[in-house]
Design a protein around this nucleic acid. Structure first.
Length: 403
RNA sequence: GGGGAGAUGCCCGAGAGGUUAAAGGGAAUGGGCUGUAAACCCAUUAGCCGUAGGCUUUCGAAGGUUCGAAUCCUUCUCUCCCCA
């Protein structure tokens, strides 16, 4: 493979190469396995598709024979990355972080090649650094430089608070690079500043500076904000197959191909072809989206489940039939149940008021017919199917019957 | 250390003694139209009462004034701003 080909693969989907592409090219010309650093703080037990954007890029590197240096920010997780919000981060206890780290890695290796990945917990060096060591590190950087960061600049000008921790955090992340002597570091565009600090620090420590690649932030299923657990607009990679499929189907149309490119290993030519067809009206965007949804489910649950999820989806939403499986609820010692109770008991409504509301709005169906008055008992002589909204189903029956 | 401003429902934000379960917007949920898309239209968004009118709790916290308090008074907690 030529350098140009390699460069093309590496820079696909990348927002920025810093300081520039030329430097990256030079690096590739050395024709040796490069060390690519990527760091994550295990502050939550699960990752979502937003995280996989960077992982796929790392995978590209691995496929080209390079090595991923995965920084497990177990130390920095205890402190909390202040990037973005200025709400106080809660500090996490060590055992929680350890558990998170484990599930994190399991999930990460659904994309990364384990053989070409080394995992480095940054507690390894930070735990024993000591105040003297830290002050030494702090002397390598200046307030002015941190203030250059646009986010800080704005806040500084607007006299909003900036905590010292926020000031320090980039230094810690940069120090990871000093310890690893990596060739390249990769992260989301929101990490640009932190990544550049890594460069500066490496230089100050007399090392070769890392090249920085930034990846786009994935827009969440709401189509506006970045994908994040706190916004509830995420697709978790541990989401159940049906759920994942459904969430993918609910994204807005102009996100379809962005998702294809950033989240799947589908070759660019195929994606571009599809995009063209959709734009010319030859292909219904819905079908492209269904393919996207399948691709995603295949990745995390396998072909079989993807097929099943797709069929299930069509069954419920296209053909308006019942799902093949649904949760069931058994009422043991009674021959009837008030519909409002049934909704609340089975968490189809938060409380009775909400249950009433749903009923009055015509969101509740029993065996296919809308129940619009709350004054209704479900007889438990036989099995019934309760439907709330478009997608919540429940089988309901008395206790004596066998399954 | 001195001076000032503020805390309202999921979020933002109006309200300045009664007609206020609290305007408006955002968001979410449900319905309609569709392709579980967007856009658009409608409705809902404290809880309880077997549904019909009620009742109970809510405006940072605790007390108080009043027939009546989100609105007035006292104390407390927290946030922000300005000066040094």
């Amino acid at each position: 493979m030529t350098i140009e080909d390699e460069l093309k693969i590496i820079t696909r989907n990348v927002v920025d190469v810093l300081p520039n592409k030329e430097e990256l090219k030079k690096l590739l010309q050395e024709r040796r396995p490069l060390k690519i650093k990527y760091g994550v703080d295990p502050t939550a037990p699960d990752i979502h598709l937003g995280h996989t954007v960077v992982l796929w890029k790392l995978r590209d590197f691995q496929n080209l024979g390079h090595i991923v240096q995965f920084i497990l920010g177990d130390f920095t997780a205890m402190i909390g990355d202040p990037s973005g919000r200025n709400e106080a981060r809660k500090t996490l206890p060590e055992d929680v972080i350890r558990d998170n780290a484990k599930t994190y890695l399991d999930q990460v290796f659904k994309i990364l090649n384990k053989e070409k990945t080394e995992v480095n917990p940054n507690s390894k060096w930070f735990k024993q650094m000591g105040l003297d060591g830290f002050l030494g590190l702090a002397s390598h950087y200046t307030v002015a430089r941190v203030l250059e960061r646009s986010e800080f600049k704005d806040r500084f000008v607007n006299k909003q608070e900036i905590t010292l921790l926020e000031f320090i955090y980039p230094l810690l992340q940069g120090y990871d690079s000093v310890m690893l002597k990596n060739d390249i570091e990769i992260g989301g565009t929101d990490q640009t500043f932190n990544l550049l600090v890594g460069r500066d620090l490496q230089k100050d420590y007399g090392q070769k500076e890392q090249i920085v690649l930034t990846m786009p932030l994935l827009v969440g299923t709401d189509g506006t904000r970045k994908m994040s657990k706190t916004y509830g607009n995420y697709i978790g990679i541990t989401d159940a197959a049906e759920q994942m499929f459904g969430k993918a189907m609910s994204i807005t149309d102009n996100l379809i191909f962005t998702y294809f490119r950033l989240l799947t290993p589908v070759p660019e030519t195929r994606i571009a072809g599809m995009e063209l067809k959709v734009r010319s009206g030859e292909m219904n965007p819905r079908d492209a989206k269904a393919m996207l949804a399948s691709e995603l489910v295949v990745l995390y649950h396998g072909k079989e489940k993807a097929l099943a999820a797709s069929e299930e989806f069509d069954r419920i939403f296209k053909n308006k039939e019942l799902p093949s499986e649904m949760p069931s609820s058994v009422y043991a010692n009674s021959d009837k149940v008030w519909i409002v109770d049934a909704l609340v008991d089975n968490k189809l409504a938060k409380n009775k008021t909400e249950a009433n509301r749903l009923i009055q709005q015509g969101a509740v169906e029993l065996d296919g017919s809308v129940i619009s008055v709350p004054d209704y008992d479900i007889s438990l002589e036989k099995e019934h199917i309760l439907k709330v909204g478009k997608r919540r189903f429940l089988k309901i029956r008395g206790g004596k019957n066998t399954v």
